[in-house]
Amino acid sequence: MRRISARLLALILLFSPVLSAGSEDTFPPAVDDLLQYVLRPPTTTYQGKIRTSLSSNGRLRTEDANVYFRPGNVYRWEFVNPEGKLSRTVVSDGTKEYVRVPGGKKVQEGAAVKSAAKLLGEDREKALLEANYKTSALPPRTEAGRSVLGLALWPKVAGKPCQEFWIDQETGVILRVKRFLPGMATSAETRFLEFTPNAALSDDLFLFKTEPGERVVAHDLDPDFLSLDALLKATGRSIHPPFNLPEGFVFESADFFEEGKTVLLQVRYTDGLAVLSLFRTEKAIQPAAPDIAPQPGAERLSGPIHTVQWKKGSYYYLLMGDLSKRLLETVSTHFK
């Protein structure tokens, strides 16, 4: 009895940071507890080196970055090209994000990711996720020299993406994430090659200062989360898409932006994981060449994002998302 208690105590102590999210101290943690870790922002300061990879039909494209992070959405990413030179730096103070290219004349400024509330509440988005995807635990393994627990989100409908997470047992930070369409030879992945939690990071890393000859400009690509009424007030343009689409997608928000002198409307849908963008414009949109020329032997769309385009009345439409081409075409029929 005494030996059993000692083992149990050792396990609880070993995995206590992760287990603290759950209601019971069990190992492996319940899938729901892992999902909570995935959905909440990191609470640990860290630095590391990450690699993003896009694998497509046997070809691999990668990009590395040095990453520094503090809770509160404060981060710095230094992207490094294959020659080892700095290609761009992204710095966020939690509200603003700056993108700088070495030797450039401008620093692009925008809102930090997740610094504004969406139209759809988090509870509703999570409910959609749980309604449209199955969660399952993956066997524990090692990433960046650290013990991780795995979680997979699998769609209940064919043609939607699957996402896998590998979560650091000590800190709950996601050390590897992979997204792919089951059955297709395309995947996108981010993984830590090196990871140092609780690193002592200088404030200077997260301070943005212009350098001589640089000026700060807004890139104007920040998303707004508008209702259709607010979109009408802002643009004078009305659009009446369905609020619910097949396979669990619901309207989340609308937005607009300008390309040249043309105003584009963007209507977004989510099923909790995958998102769809419907664009409407009065001007033709450049087609994705592989998308509209599926001739035998031609290069097919190889990335995880597919598009469907059509014209209705005087408007041009484009639907975009990382669904299979067939499912996206099925969904698009509900707009036509």
Partner: peptide, 15 residues
Amino acid sequence: AHARYEAESLVPSGD
């Protein structure tokens, strides 16, 4: 625009 919006998803995607 689509990629920037996707980054706002509840489920994180790393970068």
